[in-house]
């Protein structure tokens, strides 16, 4: 009677110092409306806090939202901290104002998908749904 395994629980985190969480909240609500259970952690979280919460919540995926700047450090740090906690298989998706040349670099550092402004909510929900755990 096990349910079919699907991406169902996701954590939306906002690392870094910018204090706007409208975007993250819009995504959280849209994901809920697409049938996900969304754990929202609030603004100004450290990558380590986000990774620890993702492990305790046993999420199927982590979504990171960041408006300004520091994505090149902060996104890979979340991936690193997940690995350190034995949860490197949890896929990480990132979104924000991210220049094209950074997208490739982030993917090389283990960010599974990267969204830039203008991506529709529908595309983002689909991206989460289509994720497969690492090595599956």
């Amino acid at each position: 009677m096990a349910e079919e395994k699907r991406i169902r629980r996701v954590l939306i985190g906002k690392p870094g110092l910018d204090g706007h969480d409208r975007g993250a909240k819009v995504i959280a609500r849209a994901l809920r409306d697409s049938g996900f259970e969304v754990i929202y952690t609030g603004i100004r979280r450290t990558p380590e806090q986000i990774a620890a919460a993702a492990v305790q919540e046993d999420v199927d995926a982590v979504g990171l939202s960041l408006l300004s700047g520091a994505h090149m450090e902060l996104f890979p740090e979340v991936v690193e901290h997940l690995k350190q906690r034995g949860a490197g298989d949890i896929p990480v998706i990132g979104g924000g104002i991210i220049p094209e040349e950074d997208v490739r670099a982030l993917k090389e550092k283990g960010i599974r998908k990267v969204f830039t402004p203008g991506t529709s909510i529908q595309e983002i929900a689909d991206a989460f749904r289509e994720l497969e755990p690492e090595g599956a």
Partner: peptide
């Protein structure tokens, strides 16, 4: 309708996120 849910309680408890002796689950 959709089966979805939003869990926001952690927002108020993040000060404990790195404390291994505090287990939080939504």
């Amino acid at each position: 309708l959709t089966g979805g849910a939003i869990h926001g309680d952690r927002v108020r408890m993040m000060q404990h996120a790195l404390d291994e002796e505090v287990v939080i689950r939504s």
